[in-house]
Nucleic acid binder design. Structure first.
Lengths: 246, 246
DNA sequence: CGCTCCCTTGAATGAGTTCAAGGCGCGTGG
DNA sequence: CCACGCGCCTTGAACTCATTCAAGGGAGCG
């Protein structure tokens, strides 16, 4: 019955270190696996869930990518996050049990579903899951704060450069190239995420391209001069104990 | 020894409904009280903690107000939140145990200190504390997302109006007047919070004042036409099931 | 082939910033 | 008690960066 689409197996999942199962032993991971539900793939522009929906489950991106956004009374929207593989969606429902954002797929994507009821049981059985969830929540809060800094403080150039560097680092830590990747989002999504217009995004990409920092071909991005890119971004970064550069 | 400044007593604290003790019975509240430490009052511009400090405790505002902000490599800073009575500070350390923001007092203020070690013990003894903490975390995430919408999408007028309305509602729910209050923050703090300059903040306040919506006298704000203020803010609000207006 | 969607580029416009000057309140010291 | 200085805030004028408006290119698809 369950899982006609994919066999869920956290133990052999290449994302296990990023995901909830991080820090668990074999046995515990198998226990976790047992509560994870599989869903049919979600097509581009299809909703995973909608703002104000009752939250019954959290979701982890297994493949593909998603965009979360808040719709306002006047019909405008604000993109809050892009989600790549291994990232957990739905935390903003913790307040009152309803999703605070809508989430749509940006390409055909798959997710692992974590039913809340079962998740709460697991917390009691495996404290390490709770601990990992806490870290994930902390990561979410910290990244929201980074986003606030980006939106509040920065020029279009800095926003664009930060966006590219952020993506580069996320792809890299997923095991992909950090210097060559395809954007799964449209210009509109980027603009909306960064608090800019699509024209400005387009111009910024052209400008970075003219400076020889990147090569742009449609959705394809190649970073040709990572050092220069980091030079643009650096002033924007929070002072931290451990440097972000690697 | 402990608590030479204030007797901590969650049971008779007027903030108990907003705070961690919400939803607990008498006995449980007394148990919670036992782990809460008191600290000497913190003076204006004094740090409660600094970005990158190891987090040993969370803090709840008992009286006064605080500002949290992130310092960047280039020396700039971005205000993340203002904290009023009953609000919990320190959640952004959940990721890795270090504070992601600095927090300073905006006036002489007092806090209740919640040592993490003891808090984690209480979770096991009183599940309702854990549940309430989860709601508080959810509230934090949701309010961060609101802030992202505000910074990403909105004109200076809308930002200013939203800021005032937000404060009004928070003061009201603390039992103070929602139409007449003193700002504890300087213009600089407001500007930095909203991603504007102090001149723009000043002009926006003047403009709202000229329209008869508010009266401004230094830090003192009086809202003279709440309906008009809400009219400015409304388009910016997320579509929600339950309206924010009351 | 022709349509649509997405993206780029140019030119004009404008919201907010920057620069500059001045006012007000308050504490300190003469 | 007043003078002075300092921090904080307001206001005006010039400027600038991003937006808006407008046009057109190119990929993908029926």
């Amino acid at each position: 019955m369950e899982s006609i689409f994919h066999k869920v197996d956290c133990l052999h999942c290449r994302l296990s270190e990023l995901c909830l199962s991080n820090g668990l032993n074999k046995e515990e991971i198998q226990q976790l696996t047992s509560i994870v539900k599989s869903k049919r793939p979600i097509k581009s522009d299809e909703f995973l869930y909608r703002q104000n929906d009752q939250c019954e489950s959290f979701y982890v991106v297994r493949s593909g990518s998603f965009r979360s956004f808040i719709s306002n009374t006047d019909g405008s929207e604000q993109t809050i996050s892009f989600y790549l593989s291994g990232e957990l969606m739905g935390l903003d429902s913790l307040q009152n049990g309803r999703f605070y954002c809508s989430v749509v797929a940006m390409e055909t994507s798959t997710v692992c579903e974590l039913p809340l009821a079962k998740l709460n049981e697991i917390y009691l059985q495996i404290p390490a899951v709770q601990a990992q969830m806490t870290r994930i929540i902390g990561r979410e809060i910290a990244s929201d704060h980074d986003k606030i800094v980006l939106l509040g403080n920065r020029s279009a150039t800095e926003k664009m450069a930060t966006f590219l560097l952020m993506l580069s680092q996320r792809y890299y830590s997923l095991g992909y190239s950090g210097t060559r990747f395809n954007l799964s989002m449209r210009r509109y999504d980027i603009a909306n995420f960064l608090g800019l217009t699509i024209e400005t995004v387009s111009r910024q990409l052209s400008s970075l391209s003219k400076q020889g920092i990147i090569t742009v071909d449609q959705r394809g991005i190649q970073i040709d001069n990572m050092d220069l890119l980091k030079t643009i971004v650096e002033p924007c970064l929070p002072k931290r104990v451990s440097s972000i550069n690697k």
